[in-house]
């Protein structure tokens, strides 16, 4: 098997792997859209020590960060149908539980996972923005929403951006575990193609290249955005 690579297969499978990129991206974007605001709000609740919510958030974060993603995926994948079954029967929903598109499970798992990670990222980023900023904002007449939107959040963002970039890249990589949900993303598509002729190595090389391109692109975009934001930060810090 190891004399040489099947280059024809290599090229063909590259595009098959590439076809999984939209799926990976959709999951990433949806998860981020949910996790960014939710993570920020919960981080605030932790810092301001709002009762009940902050303790729940703490346990939640500890669990999500202490268990492997694959285990979280399996838990959601097996528990959601169990939980939904009585609900579906109650409301006489026609859809079969087991026919739900796996992408919905992916949305749930990765949103929950990323939220927990971002709570920690925002917690440390917010604490670097001094309290005086908020007080000054109030004293010139800004209300809460304005103060946060115009003063606090921009400063938090600059500090948090590198970590958000890391979280995004990790999220993209984690979508590779979608195969456990039979989710037809990058890895699974290429693997299926490989099963035909046992060209596993070529398939994994293609998968590897696709992820590499994707992650490099994302890192590059984040760096650009960070440069733009930094223009407004103190010069010569």
């Amino acid at each position: 098997m190891s004399v040489g690579l099947d280059y024809q297969f290599l090229v063909k499978t590259f595009f098959i792997a590439l076809s999984g990129v939209p799926t990976a991206l959709i999951i990433t974007i949806v998860s981020l859209l949910i996790a960014l605001p939710l993570g920020f709000l919960l981080a605030l609740s932790r810092i301001n020590q709002i009762p009940v919510i902050s303790q729940l958030a703490r346990v939640y974060v500890s669990f999500v960060r202490g268990t492997p993603v694959i285990v979280q995926i399996f838990i959601i994948f097996t528990s959601v149908p169990l939980l939904l079954k009585p609900v579906f029967e109650e409301y006489h929903v026609q859809t079969n539980i087991y026919d739900i598109n796996p992408i919905w499970y992916a949305f749930i798992v990765f949103s929950l996972n990323t939220t927990a990670i971002l709570i920690e990222v925002f917690r440390s980023a917010i604490s670097t923005v001094s309290k005086g900023q908020l007080e000054a904002a109030y004293s010139v007449g800004l209300n809460n929403v304005q103060a946060f939107r115009r003063i606090i959040i921009p400063q938090t963002l600059v500090v948090a951006l590198p970590n958000i970039c890391t979280a995004t890249v990790n999220l993209i990589k984690a979508t590779s575990l979608g195969y456990a949900l039979s989710l037809r993303e990058i890895t699974l598509r290429a693997q299926v193609a490989a099963n035909v002729g046992y060209n596993y190595i070529e398939a994994y090389i293609d998968i590897f290249i696709v992820y590499l391109l994707l992650c490099s692109l994302v890192e590059y975009l984040f760096k650009l955005y960070e440069k733009r934001l930094r223009k407004y930060k103190a010069v010569g810090a």
């Binding site: 990589k173 590779s176 575990l177 890895t187 994994y204 590897f208 992820y211 590499l212 994707l214």
Partner: peptide
Amino acid sequence: RCTPSIVL
């Protein structure tokens, strides 16, 4: 850092 663990 850009390679998912299972791929590696």
